[in-house]
Simulated scan of single mutants.
Amino acid sequence: MHPLSKRITHAAACLLSVAPSGVAFAQSGPSEPDHVLAATPETVHWGYFSPDLDPVLTIASGDVVRVETVTAVGFSKEDPEGAVERLGLEPVDAVADLIDILAEVENEGVHILTGPIRIEGAEVGDVLEIRVYDVAVRSPFYGVNISRTTGGALPDLVPDEGYERVFDIDVETGSIAFNESIELPLAPFMGIMGVAASERVSSVPPGRYGGNMDLKEIVAGTTLYLPVLIEGGMFSTGDGHAAQGDGEVNLTAVEAPLTLTAEFILHKDMEIGFPRVETPSHYISMGLDPDLNMAAELAVRESIDFLGAEFGLSTLDAYSLTSLGVDLEVSQIVDQTKGIHAMIPKSLFTDLEDDFWAAE
């Protein structure tokens, strides 16, 4: 049995079905979370992670938290009502929350993050496991995609005034109409999930702390592991994506306000250097660097370290297996620090007795 698959808690009764697209949707789980954290001016911070922020919620290991988020994409702090009219939105629920936040919270960057959440007993060197039970789109069920001349893979394609699209999200059919003949599958995930770094950092580049990883594999039914870098961990999340392609090449995804429901489990007996992910079908190691080639190299090294530590392979055997059976994929190329992730199929391991909590 793989060490990452041994941990069962009260909330592991959550059952999942897997749609043809491969997106997992939670069917059942805890009847109620232990905590609900709304997105309000008092519970968000804008544009950064910092060890100096006070927690807005303190939880115990094993607690399940429902976290509401908003997105400021398409809005300006100066004229939110104008954005509501331009985008054709109703000023209710997530949009009403956003308007309150824009009026009261200082803009210190790009992403509005809900948190931080302090985990009792978390110490430097621990590992925080985040079991993602559900990721849901918030009313009024919309998303925005923008391009700017300042970023993306091909900023020279974008006119000076930029590019903006607003989408209606059909939660009943699980789809997003791109136009009359093109439809995107709804596949919500949090673009940002992270703990506080040891110093203040922008929310744009990801790092050891997680953050803006934009890894579309972290949907409902998956687990994220993060190294704890300061006392309490101090977890925050935001930058909800209703759909995204690997690369996020035009700068943004379908940016949408989402609600994350997750269990937070503290581990004293694990050691990781970078974020890792587990899904019903894969282990995922990550490489993050401003240079995409270096990010790939780091992802390979993380894969080698994982295979050695968890399956007892020598360095050269792990290097060989990574070449023969592991796929490197591009997470994103637009967040200053670029991301490559190594997809390690569980099907490679014939003796694996996998009881991952969300196993298919």
Rank of each mutant, 00 (worst) to 15 (best):
V254I: 15
L113Y: 05
S147Y: 02
E32N: 07
E68G: 11
L57M: 04
S50H: 00
G240K: 01
E108H: 09
D317E: 13
A13C: 10
I8F: 05
T261R: 09
D134G: 04
I101L: 07
F349H: 07
R66S: 15
F349C: 03
E68D: 13
F349L: 05
R131I: 00
L184I: 10
V64K: 05
E217P: 00
I182E: 13
P91T: 05
A309I: 03
E164F: 06
M270R: 15
P116M: 02
A72S: 15
F356Y: 15
V277C: 01
G121K: 05
G191P: 04
S175A: 15
T237N: 05
N107P: 03
M190W: 06
H2K: 09
G152I: 04
V219G: 10
S347R: 10
H45R: 13
V73P: 00
L184T: 09
V23N: 08
F141R: 09
V166L: 10
E263H: 03
V171C: 15
R208N: 02
R118T: 01
E32M: 12
P159A: 07
E199W: 07
E120R: 13
S320H: 10
S331E: 03
E108D: 06
G207A: 01
E164V: 12
E180H: 14
P205R: 00
F167R: 11
E68V: 01
E248M: 14
E120S: 13
T237R: 03
A197I: 00
E172I: 12
T223N: 10
I344G: 08
D156S: 14
L113K: 07
K268V: 08
T237V: 11
P275G: 12
D160C: 04
P91H: 04
S50A: 02
V219L: 06
T58W: 01
D335A: 15
M234S: 06
S181D: 13
T322R: 10
G47C: 06
G312E: 12
R301I: 01
D54E: 15
L316M: 14
D355A: 12
T315S: 12
M294E: 12
L328C: 10
M190F: 07
D289E: 07
V56R: 08
D170C: 14
K77C: 02
E123C: 04
P116F: 03
L215D: 09
H241P: 12
S320F: 10
L224S: 03
Q332V: 05
C14M: 08
F356L: 11
I230D: 02
E199S: 15
L16Y: 15
F356T: 09
D351E: 14
N107L: 08
T71K: 13
S320I: 01
T69W: 07
S203N: 07
E329G: 01
I230F: 00
P55C: 11
L292A: 08
L184P: 07
M294H: 11
A299E: 06
G312R: 10
G287N: 00
L53K: 06
T252D: 07
Y133S: 11
S331V: 05
A26H: 00
L260D: 12
V249P: 13
D156Q: 15
E183F: 12
I130A: 10
G221N: 03
I284E: 10
I146W: 03
